[in-house]
């Protein structure tokens, strides 16, 4: 069956990319910013958290890439499937 992947709208890509962006920011803060060691009890909290976010974000994007959601080209959205509010 022909189809295309959900791409940017796959929730795993959305989560993964946000966590990667935050991971980069925190890692940079941990390397070059004020470490504020008196607050954290002498650990570089931004660096550790930043690296952890990069790893988790990477796992989500890798997962979405390895097992993509394929949408059949003849798919017709069911109006009832919309979340109700």
């Amino acid at each position: 069956m022909a189809g295309h992947s959900a791409g940017a709208m796959d929730v795993r890509n959305v989560i993964g990319s946000l966590l990667l962006v935050y991971g980069v920011i925190l890692t940079i803060m941990g390397l070059f910013g004020d470490k504020e060691l008196d607050k954290t009890g002498n650990i570089n909290a931004n660096l550790i958290a930043g690296i952890a976010l990069l790893v988790v974000g990477g796992i989500f994007t890798a997962w979405a890439r390895l097992k993509p959601i394929v949408i059949p080209d003849d798919y017709v959205p069911d109006p009832d499937a919309r979340p109700h509010h």
């Binding site: 709208m9 949408i71 959205p77 919309r82």
Partner: peptide
């Protein structure tokens, strides 16, 4: 905004949500 203005095919959005 992507959902509202249908920039992305709405099938992508809802189907990916439902088959997760």
């Amino acid at each position: 905004w992507m959902v509202k203005s249908n920039v992305s095919d709405s099938a992508d959005f809802f189907l990916s949500g439902r088959s997760l």
